[in-house]
Amino acid sequence: MVRNDQPLLDVRGLSVAFRTRGHEQLSAVQELSVSIDPGGSLALVGESGSGKSVSMRALLGLLPANAVVGGSARWSGEGDVPGGTELIGLAPRAFRAIRGRQIGMVFQNAMQALNPTIPLKRQLTEHLRWHGSCTRAEAEVRAVRALGDVGIPDPERRIRMYPFQLSGGMRQRAMIAMAMVADPRLLIADEPTTAVDVTVQKQILDLLIDLRDRGTAIIMVTHDLGVARYLCEDVAVLYSGQVMESARLVDAVEDPRHPYTRGLIGSALELGDDSPLRPIGGNPPDLADRPAGCAFQPRCTAADGERCAEVQPLVRLADAREVRCWRSSHE
C-alpha cells in the first residue's frame, strides 16, 4: 500500500499546447495543478473546450503527435517508487504497464470507444493478457465477473455479443467494466454520463459511487456541476485551460468564490435554489485569441476593467481553496 501522506496522483503545472499548421502553438491547458488521494474523488468541471478532457488525455499520453505537453504528473499508485513515477514523458513500455492496469479510463461514448467488430469478450480480456497478469481462462472469469459487477444481467451470454447488440446503457456499463476488469487504482471517467439518457445517467453514477466506495479513486470530467456533486468530494473548475477555482465540492457549491463558478451553479438545473436559471452570457474565448488578463473577464458580470485586465494568479485561501480572481481575497 502507498503511504497515506502522498497523493495518488499529483499534477503540477501541467500545460498542453497543439502545434498548428502555421507553426504557432495553441495553448489548450495552462498551469493545471490538481491532486487526488488514494480512494479520493475529484471532479474537473468546465464548458467544452475548457481543456478538461485534453488534460486527462495528456496524463495518459493519449494525445496526437502534435500535442506539446509540459509540467509534471507524479503517479504513486505503483507500490514503492519513492516520490512516484513521472508520467509526463514516460517511456512507452513503462507507460503501458500503467495504462489500463493502474489507471483505467472511461470514455464519453461507449458506441465509439468500443470496437464495433470485436466481441465484448476479447475487448474485456485483451489488456489482461497484454499485461500478462493472468491466463486466458482466468481473464474470461474476471471479465464475466466485471460485467456482473456493473449490473449487466446474464453476463456469460452477453460477453459473447458485439457492442451494437447491447442497449446504450448496457454498452456504457460494459465500457466501465472494461476499465475496471484490470482493477485500477484510479479511474478517469471522461463525461461518462453525457451520451446517455437521464435514467441511465443515474444508474451509471450509482455504479461509479459504488466503485468509489470500494476504494477506487475517481477523476470525473464533466460539464455538469450537478452530476459532479453526486459523486465527488473535490472539484476543480476549469475555464479556457486554467483552473478558476478549486475547493471541496460542497464549499464550492454553497459558497462559490469565483464569478464563473457562480455562473455555472446559476445555470445548473438541480443546484440553484428556486430562482430561475441564469445562463452565462457569451462564449468561451477562442484558444488562439484569449483576452489579456483574466480569461473570463469578457463574460464576467462582476468585471472591473482595471484589475481584471491584469493576469490573475491562482490565490490560495483558507481551507485549501484556490481561486483565480482578485475579488476573492478582498471579500
Binding site: 495504462r99 489500463g100 461514448n109 485483451e126
Partner: peptide, 13 residues
C-alpha cells in the same frame, strides 16, 4: 476512432 485511443488507454502497444 475513439476505440483506438481506448485500446491505447488499456495499455496496448
Amino acid at each position: 476512432e475513439e476505440y483506438v485511443v481506448a485500446a491505447v488507454a488499456k495499455g496496448g502497444s
